[in-house]
Design a protein around this nucleic acid. Structure first.
Length: 651
RNA sequence: GGCGAUGUAGCUCAGCUGGUUAGAGCGCACGGCUCAUAUCCGUGGUGUCCGGGGUUCAAGUCCCUGCAUCGCCA
């Protein structure tokens, strides 16, 4: 059996965050799981590097697009080892091999008549990198970017996607697991119940040059999605590499729900038009909310994988993400939740189980796994063996269906049973009685064997911790090449194996140890008593709801903006909130005055006025600050998600 | 506005094609053990299964309707 698993290639206009980390860890875990099941596996990730937004981002950073994409792509590449993610291939859409294949496919689809030239006019939004329909506009502006789209009348190439609509509907209906979980399959079918429009796949070079030139018309470059999706086949050597034959028929993609449409609709129809088979499965997951709200730059609650690993360790992070989220649904991320998982699941249940078993083998069996005494077997052992085999089966089913949380639950059921088995059989009592020596050896053997199976199935999820478990069990060498078929059944532990307790697998974490919370998070409702208590011993860096309430935040509309002479980072803004006021903001390096007018921003309205470069500032504009790996700062104004009157209070 | 999903214990969620006193984990309370990372084991409680109608011998589970939240589409 073979497996080909991919993550999306990540758009390099932002640094890696929790969402990227989750998708990639899922794919890595699945790759490791399939290898454990005996498959030959190919796992690919990479970066998507063309398009207008990249050009703009590069400009902001004062770099050429090439320098910029090299830098960010490298940041992604360097992130994966921190998460114990080991892809077989890291593809970039700026790789010459990829570019060549994209052009070949375009030519092929063009030759077969599925690409045509047509005139198009409409409202083009730069932020969205696409034309907006009349109905999408709000007050003549793009609802997402609050900017007025440009009226553009241009000629472009279109992919005849509509031609494959019926085929696609049929294919999805006939293959229930083509798109999973089911909710997303339904969503796609519902979308397909309306006539599909053809896809505009070109951008004129007059507007954009950072892209792959169309092979049949050098006055155009390729639309990013038509370019990016093709990475899944170029990465395995399409058209004539041997790997392509081997892996394409079993291709599985993992994505987040925001890019469902390109993957469920554009991509299969593109493949069909190019004469290629569709991928086998598409796995769609939800979002991580951070402290109950969406993760976004403007809220300043973006979670960085590097920081997580530094704080909790890679195994805990992987375990938490896979255990906490029901694949497909949204989930909440918080430091409390991860600490709770670490302490109760990893330290108390699993870590402590290893510790107590290994100590007892040390004390009662000279540190060597004893041989079970067949004459001392009871129903308890049978129950344990049955449960272990059942665990392996449900684990495999769950992992294969991307139900990682259920797979882990099955493992923890066995961990619970082993802990109970210890208590009911009380080896410390057996050790006191010579007559019970056979019984003691039997119990200890069964415990060691249970641990072996647990270490085995945890390898895909927590590779590092599983290695440490294997080492403690004296199985460091044999575990490395283990498979579920050969080693996933009861009885693989050899009597006489020397065990070594080693250091704690998972230390307990102090619950109070916690980062300062980002501003704006919801305060938990508490009764009066505990709220009063909270005031007395407030964790460092936290404020009470009342204290927060003293800050008067408001929405303000920027009506004018101009540079302040001699100050290279200050702008004088005239705001309506709803009264007119002047605010000095240190954003001159990040925004040009012209692009600010009309924006609705958030301000602190009751800040004591202050003079900056001779101008009195009546308040403060909120912006999120980001510092990248190289220490470059970037400011993004905090704004509101929708149309609301200037002066509205923010609470 | 159209389509869809979700709404179950303090929290996070399981409950397949309707069938005995509605479940798990965490948290909480009490008890037990001592091999163990103040860990583990046992016991316990609370639920208008979102509201309102209906079908049925029987509904958290099906139908209608309302509310709330979210998503996709326009």
């Amino acid at each position: 059996m073979t497996t080909y698993i991919t993550t999306p290639i990540y758009y390099v206009n932002a640094m890696p965050h929790l969402g990227h980390a989750y998708t990639t860890i899922v794919a890595d875990t699945y790759a490791r799981f399939r290898r454990l099941a005996g498959d030959e596996v190919r796992f690919q990730t990479g970066t998507d590097e063309h398009g207008e937004k990249i050009v703009q981002a590069a400009e902001r950073e004062g770099e050429t697009p090439r320098q910029y994409v090299d830098r960010i792509s490298e940041a992604f590449r360097r992130t994966w080892p921190l998460l114990a993610v080991e892809p077989d291939n890291f593809i970039r859409t700026t790789d010459p091999g990829h570019i060549r294949v994209v052009q070949e496919i375009l030519q092929k689809v063009h030759d077969s008549g599925d690409i045509y030239f047509s005139e198009y006019s409409g409202h083009y939004c730069q932020g969205c990198e696409r034309f907006l329909t009349e109905k999408e506009l709000k007050d003549g502006k793009c609802p997402d970017h609050l900017t007025e789209p440009a009226e553009i009348n241009e000629q472009n190439y279109f992919f005849r996607m509509s031609r494959y609509q019926d085929w696609l509907i049929d294919h999805i209906r006939k293959n229930p697991d083509f798109i999973t979980p089911e909710r997303y399959r339904n969503e796609v079918l519902s979308f397909l119940s309306e006539p599909l429009e053809d896809l505009c796949i070109s951008r004129p070079t007059s507007r954009l040059t950072w892209g792959i030139p169309l092979p049949f018309d050098d006055k155009f470059v390729t639309y990013v999605w038509f370019d990016a999706l093709i990475n899944y086949v170029t990465g395995i050597g399409y058209p004539d590499g041997p790997e392509f034959e081997k892996y394409w028929s079993v291709a599985e993609h993992v994505i987040a729900k925001d890019i469902l449409k390109p993957h469920a609709i554009y991509w299969p129809t593109m493949l069909r038009a190019a004469g290629l088979a569709p991928y086998r499965r598409l796995h769609v997951h939800g979002y991580w909310n951070v402290d109950e709200t969406k993760m976004s730059k403007s809220l300043g609650n973006v979670v960085r994988p590097r920081e997580l690993v530094e704080e909790y360790g890679v195994d805990t992070v992987r375990y938490f993400l896979l255990r906490e989220m029901s694949f497909g649904l949204d989930s909440s991320f918080s430091s409390e939740a991860i600490v709770a998982r670490q302490n109760s699941d990893l330290a108390n249940d699993l870590g402590n189980l290893f510790s107590r078993v290994l100590t007892m083998i040390g004390k009662y069996a000279d540190g060597m796994v004893p041989e079970a005494d067949p004459s001392a077997l009871t129903g308890a052992e049978q129950e344990l063996v049955d449960a272990a085999e059942k665990m392996i089966t449900s684990y495999q089913e769950a992992m294969d269906g991307f139900s990682f949380h259920q797979g882990l639950q099955a493992v923890w059921d066995l961990i619970g049973l082993l802990n109970r088995y210890i208590v009911t059989n009380a080896p410390w009592e057996l050790a006191k009685d010579e007559q019970q020596a056979g019984r003691l050896r039997t119990v200890l053997y069964h415990l060691a064997e249970g641990l072996r199976l647990i270490a085995l199935v945890l390898r895909p999820v927590m590779p590092g911790a599983a290695d440490r478990m294997a080492a403690a069990l004296g199985l460091a060498d044999s575990m490395a090449g283990a498979t579920l078929t050969a080693d996933g059944r009861w009885g693989g532990m050899r009597a006489g194996t020397r065990v070594d307790r080693g250091p704690q697998l998972f230390p307990r974490l102090d619950k109070k140890k916690k980062k300062p919370q980002p501003a704006g998070q919801k305060t938990r409702k508490k009764d009066k008593k505990s709220r009063a208590a909270a005031q007395e011993e407030l964790p460092e860096g936290m404020i009470t709801f009342d204290q927060f309430g003293k800050v008067e935040l408001r929405v303000a509309e920027i009506v004018a903006a101009e540079k302040i002479e001699k100050a290279d980072r200050l702008l004088r803004l005239t705001l309506r909130a709803p009264e007119e006021r002047t605010v000095v903001a240190g954003i001159a390096r990040h925004y040009r005055p012209g692009e600010l007018v009309g924006k609705r921003v958030l301000i602190v309205a009751n800040l004591k006025p202050a003079k900056l470069m001779g101008v009195t500032s009546q308040g403060m504009v909120l912006a999120a600050k980001e510092t990248d790996a190289d220490g470059n700062e970037r400011l993004v104004l905090a704004t509101v998600d929708g149309d609301i009157a200037p002066g509205s209070r923010v609470a």
